[in-house]
């Protein structure tokens, strides 16, 4: 079983990837999914999206259409769920 991780366009552009998946056959939490993303960012072109080793606080983490805060990161994940990472934009 997997959960899908999606990045919105601007975020994907900086990160260098548009999405990922996480195996949740064994218990996984939202924090586990975010760690997987953070590890990809450290190794790739998206290190500016990290602050103090973790996803930048401006990145909105949305699990099943609900915005999550750091307090929600111990939520267990279930197969088929989608985590969206959204970076609010600036331009006009």
């Amino acid at each position: 079983m997997t959960v899908r991780i999606e990045l919105t366009s601007r975020l994907a552009e900086i990160a260098g990837f548009a999405g990922d998946s996480l195996d949740v056959s064994s218990p996984r939490t939202l924090r586990d999914a975010l760690i997987a993303v953070e590890q990809r960012l450290v190794c790739g072109s998206g290190s500016e999206l990290l602050a103090r080793g973790r996803l930048h606080p401006s990145i909105l983490v949305v699990l099943n259409e609900c915005a999550c805060t750091r307090a929600d990161e111990n939520v267990p994940l279930r197969g088929g769920e989608t985590i969206r990472l959204m970076l609010p934009v600036a331009g006009g």
Binding site: I14, L49, I59, G91
Partner: peptide, 15 residues
């Protein structure tokens, strides 16, 4: 509340 810290931003945004 949405942006507790200013995000990475690029001045020459595509538009």
């Amino acid at each position: 509340c949405l942006l507790p810290e200013e995000p990475p931003w690029r001045h020459d945004f595509p538009v």
